[in-house]
Design a binder for these strands. Structure first.
Lengths: 246, 246
DNA sequence: GAGTGGTCTAGACCACGGT
DNA sequence: CCGTGGTCTAGACCACTCC
């Protein structure tokens, strides 16, 4: 099974950029890339669209395509989420407490998020994430039982969740949607997170899907507002400009 | 000056989805949309790509294209390119009040965000954004005086900010970094935003840079937590770079 | 005017999901 | 089998930047 052409172009261009280009250096024009990769302009643009979206390049109308000025250390901020990994990189000591694992029929809102049939069963895993003995965030993760049959507390305790999904169930999250809101902690959450009552908190709702577009996880997180920032990078999409602003 | 076709399709599909579709409902197929909008499939796909990227729809190979399960009554700060534009598309009546425009020496924290020399001067523009006479968010935008000399209240009042930056100063933001935090409104903010005191709010910190990697804007926003969500889509790059066969 | 990215067309075949 | 989205081609013209 060979990969689609445009994905091969993506991979090769990434390699070229990493090995042979400097920040803000000009890339070959789209028409030159057509010749280089022996494909149509549309295919080249599909690849460049992806690289632009991920912030590796930027395009200037009439001038050309350029390597982005800030090349992130190959692992994108927004490309994969791992609390443990993140904290380790920041020199903190991350610990995850698995509080409870339950199996039951999902209620309406969860069914919807996971696009499940009514009365489908889901696992609910509650976790408390700490760094250097300081409570950081509280997570509730819902996983469809049909995707992850026979899940046990031993399994989630011994293996990182994403690794477990991959090795035991051959499930990999290829994409995730996150909604970030602001809220006030509930009394229970205040206790768990060791914050004053009425504190502000970040509420995260993450829905991950696998390569077949099947939802495999829905997680609600409550994060301490004094400890947590949600950082993103946005590339100018230039779509739909021209508004009035009076 | 008419908009590109695919952008018109984006706008209309957004409207259709908002007014006539339910979450998870199936949209017409791409070939049917070709007929509806009298354009090629490529153009339809450009539009659908954008909507998918912004999390409004999802696609299932072999099955069709569906409306995402979206949070109602809350606006997406993450894919918002223009408050004014966004509100108009949602059928709201957006108004931006330019409250004050000042010029002074930037304090330490602002200097740092804009990577300026000590004692550099910056403009500070304070704006209140409303929709249908309802206060929505409060923004404070810092702009380096050396990049935007001789800025006046007349200019910011007559032209959208990003357009002004481009046409008068040849400055375009090619990338922006955003930090999202949760907080409690200050008494002043509560008054401005017409919310109860001690309400939760989303705090956004945006730093935009131009094509030369020079910071051109630093904006602090306070958004009502009952009106705004920050939605992002994350792609797992390891799937692309990994070399698994199927 | 030459070269660039931005938009667009009218086809084609493939891979997948259901019948 | 058919209809779906996924990939791809070989052109075309426009808008923008720079000389």
């Amino acid at each position: 099974m060979t990969k689609p052409l445009y994905q091969q172009v993506i991979l090769d261009l990434q390699k070229q950029i990493r090995e042979h280009f400097q920040p803000n250096e000009k890339l070959p024009s789209e028409r030159m890339l057509m010749d280089q990769y022996d494909c149509s302009r549309n295919t080249i643009r599909l690849a460049l669209d992806d690289l632009e979206q991920r912030g590796l390049i930027y395009r200037l109308h009439g001038k050309g395509t350029f390597v982005a000025s800030i090349l992130l250390n190959q692992f994108d901020l927004g490309s994969m989420y791992s609390f443990t990994q993140e904290m380790k990189e920041l020199g903190r000591n991350p610990i995850t407490f698995n509080l409870t694992l339950e199996l039951f029929e999902a209620k309406e809102s969860v069914l919807k998020q996971l696009t499940l049939e009514p009365h489908s069963k889901v696992y609910l895993l509650k976790r408390l994430r700490m760094a250097d003995d300081e409570p950081m965030m509280f997570e509730e993760t819902y996983m469809p039982a049909e995707v992850f049959p026979d899940l046990t507390m031993e399994m989630v305790s011994s293996t990182p969740l994403y690794e477990l999904m991959k090795t035991y169930y051959q499930q990999t999250a290829v994409m995730a949607f996150e909604d970030v809101k602001a809220g006030i902690v509930t009394p229970v959450e205040a206790k768990i997170l060791d914050t004053p009552e009425q504190s502000a908190c970040l509420k995260l709702y993450r829905r991950s899907i696998n390569d077949k577009n099947v939802p495999i996880e829905y997680t609600k997180s409550v994060a301490r507002s004094d400890k947590f920032v949600y950082r993103t990078k946005q590339v100018n999409r230039r779509v739909l400009t021209g508004d009035q602003n009076k």
